[in-house]
Amino acid sequence: MIVLTVASPKGGVGKTSVTANLAAALAARGRRVVAVDLDPQNALRLHMGVPPTEISGTSRSTLAGEPWGRLMFQAPHGVRLLPFGELNDQDMQRFEVYLEEHPEWLAEHLRTLGLAADDIVLIDTPPGHSPYLRQALAVAHRVLIVLLADAASYATIPQISRLVDTHCAQRREFQGSHLLVNQVDTARHLARDVLNAMRAAYGPRILGTIHSDQAVSEALAYDQTVFDYAPHSVAALDFNHCADKLLNLLAPPSLLRSFLGQTSGA
């Protein structure tokens, strides 16, 4: 499997929408994609047609000692989803303690899914540093850092980059991190200035930009991705471009197989 962890240094950047739509774009290119929601907001399911009343997920199954095999939901656009699930405050605290005590939790469960070497796993994480992000970084082959074209996002890039390096750089299978700038409004002078500054400082690391497009939020209102709701929208074109660029960056499956074999045997 190829694991892509989606992270953000702060909230409000549209990270979950990026995860859902990028997963759909990759699936449309014939790749088998599993989206894993590690954000306690449990919002990824809302993009993928899972009923809002559904409370099952990896968190609840973990606390109950149940396997993940029966948790998989099939989204209409071909992506399979493992939702986070709904927990009360007490169970959430128990779960977070469990994650701290079991750093191999996510890696072990992903290995039980029987995924092929070139299957893609996209992991949505909560903003900032958390036990969920640490679990996702521990298995990541690449990290996608979602930002806005604003001064606050720009200022956080060194911090989130250091965090990724701390948890990923020493692993031989890690291939690098990328910046994805979301909700870009090119009509705003400040957005253009910040985007230019990002390109000047981090140009090779920028995977792409997603233009601000009302179709993305409207699609969510209908429990859809932007490809279901407005396949010819500007945002849909942007996500397709990012998916193409990402697939060109991914290592050949044979290389990943060798890395995974070394990791499993370690």
Results as ranks from 00 to 15, higher is better:
H141V: 00
N88F: 02
W68H: 13
D185Y: 02
S264Q: 07
D165E: 15
L144W: 01
L71G: 07
D213M: 07
H77R: 12
F84K: 09
D228W: 01
E173L: 06
A243E: 04
T62Q: 07
V13R: 01
F239Q: 02
L22I: 00
S212A: 04
I157E: 05
T19C: 09
R162I: 08
T186N: 08
L82T: 05
L190Q: 13
A7W: 05
A138G: 15
A197W: 00
R45K: 15
T53P: 06
H189W: 07
R80A: 09
D124P: 00
R142T: 14
V143G: 04
L246G: 08
Y132H: 10
E66T: 04
R192I: 11
F174W: 11
A215T: 13
S233M: 05
A197H: 12
A149K: 01
Q41F: 04
A27N: 10
L81C: 09
L4Y: 00
Y229E: 01
R192K: 14
R32V: 03
V36D: 10
L148Y: 10
L147Q: 13
P127F: 03
A43W: 02
D193H: 08
L220M: 09
A43H: 13
P52F: 10
E100V: 11
V226S: 03
P131L: 02
G203E: 05
S212G: 01
L179T: 10
L247H: 05
R172F: 11
F174A: 03
I120Q: 08
A151L: 14
